[in-house]
C-alpha cells in the first residue's frame, strides 16, 4: 500500500478543512495516510485533531511542538518532515496549497530528491503511479503531469476536493521530535488582524469590491454582508491601487488566487487580471451598474444595479434566509 504523509494546519483549534480534503483525496484512492501538524496548537488540540483526520481516513496523527515553534520556522518544519518521511517509508508528501505549504513544499521536494506538483485540482493514484492536473497561465489551460517515480510532493488547491463522510475512527496520536537547525529564523509575526473571517485563499465564500466602492470606509457594507454568510472579503486591483484596500486583500493576477463555492463581485468590471484570480469559483455573482461590464460574461448570476443599494438589500435577504434556516 502506498503511504502518504499529509501536512495539515490548525486554525482556532480546528484542523483546516483544506487539509481534510487532501487526506480524503488520498485515503479514498487507497493510500495509507498519516497526518502531521506543527506548533503549540497541534499539541493542545491533538485529541480533537486525531478524531477529524481519522474521520477522513488518516491512520495516524503526528504532532510536533517545541518552544521554537511559536512561529512558522521553515527549516525546522522541513527537517522534521523530511526525517519523518524517510523513517516512515512514505511515497507521497501532500498538503493543501496554503501560503505556508507553498513556501515549505519546494524545499522538501529538493531535499527528498522528489518532483513537485503545486496547487493541483486533481490527483490520481493508480497503483504506484501518481498523476496530477494543475492550472497554467492562471487557469487559461491545464496540464496533467505524471511523476516518474516516488517520492512525490503534491499540494492541492483548497475547496476543489470533497470531504468524505466521517468514518468515526480516530487516528492514533504520536509525536515527532523537531530536528534540523535554523538557517533563516522567523522572529516575529506583525500586523495579524485578529479578525475571525476566513483566509481568502481557503475561503468557501468571498465577497469582493472594486473601485466603485469609492472609499476604504465603505468596505463596511461589504463586511456586513460577508459576516452574515461567513465570507472572506476581497478587493480588485483597482481598489487596492486607489488605496481603498490593502494588497493582502487583492484577488487577481498579482494578488491572491481564490477558489470559493460562491464569489460575489461588487462594482468590479472584470479585467482579465481579476478574472485570472477568481474564475474557477463555482458560482460567480456580479453586481454592477454597467450592463456592458465584462464580469457579466463570467457571472452565473448578474444584477444590474448600484452596489451601495444592492449589497445592503442582499445582506438583509441573506439574514432573512439564514434565520429561517
Amino acid at each position: 500500500m502506498t503511504k502518504a504523509l499529509v501536512f495539515v494546519e490548525l486554525k482556532n483549534g480546528n484542523v483546516k478543512k483544506a487539509g481534510l480534503e487532501t487526506i480524503h483525496a488520498l485515503s479514498s484512492q487507497g493510500a495509507e495516510v498519516h497526518a502531521i501538524a506543527f506548533g503549540p496548537e497541534a499539541a493542545a488540540h491533538a485529541a480533537e485533531a486525531a478524531k477529524v483526520v481519522g474521520g477522513q481516513g488518516a491512520k495516524k496523527f503526528i504532532k510536533c511542538d517545541s518552544v521554537d515553534l511559536k512561529f512558522y520556522q521553515s527549516d525546522i518544519y522541513a527537517a522534521t518532515i523530511a526525517d519523518t518521511f524517510k523513517a516512515g517509508g512514505y511515497s507521497i508528501l501532500a498538503g493543501a496549497a496554503s501560503t505556508l505549504v507553498k513556501d515549505l513544499f519546494p524545499t522538501l521536494a529538493a531535499r527528498l530528491d522528489a518532483g513537485i506538483a503545486p496547487d493541483c485540482i486533481e490527483v490520481k493514484l493508480e497503483g504506484s503511479s501518481l498523476s496530477a492536473k494543475r492550472p497554467m497561465l492562471a487557469g487559461k489551460y491545464f496540464v496533467t503531469l505524471k511523476f516518474k517515480a516516488f517520492p512525490a510532493v503534491v499540494s492541492i488547491r483548497p475547496n476543489v476536493m470533497a470531504i468524505g463522510a466521517d468514518s468515526g475512527t480516530a487516528a492514533e496520536v504520536s509525536d515527532a521530535t523537531p530536528s534540523g537547525s535554523i538557517r533563516a529564523k522567523t522572529v516575529d509575526l506583525a500586523g495579524a488582524s485578529g479578525n475571525s473571517r476566513p483566509d481568502l485563499t481557503e475561503a468557501d465564500r468571498i465577497i469582493s469590491a472594486g473601485r466603485a466602492i469609492k472609499a476604504a470606509e465603505n468596505f463596511k457594507i461589504i463586511e456586513a454582508c460577508a459576516d452574515v454568510i461567513g465570507a472572506a472579503v476581497g478587493a480588485s486591483r483597482a481598489a487596492v491601487d486607489a488605496g481603498m484596500a490593502p494588497h493582502s486583500m487583492q484577488v487577481g493576477q498579482t494578488g491572491k488566487t481564490v477558489n470559493p463555492s460562491l464569489y460575489i463581485a461588487c462594482g468590479i468590471s472584470g479585467a482579465i487580471q481579476h478574472l485570472a484570480g477568481m474564475k474557477t469559483s463555482k458560482v460567480i455573482v456580479a453586481i454592477n451598474t454597467d450592463p456592458e461590464a465584462p464580469i457579466f460574461q463570467k457571472a452565473d448570476y448578474g444584477a444590474i444595479g448600484d452596489l451601495f443599494e444592492v449589497v445592503p438589500a442582499l445582506t438583509e435577504e441573506f439574514k432573512k434566509l439564514l434565520s429561517a434556516g
Binding site: V187, A190, G191, S193, D199, L200, H247
Partner: peptide, 12 residues
C-alpha cells in the same frame, strides 16, 4: 514575508 490576513512574518 507577507502571509494571510495582511500579517507579516519577520525573518532574519
Amino acid at each position: 514575508r507577507a502571509v494571510e490576513g495582511g500579517a507579516e512574518e519577520i525573518i532574519e
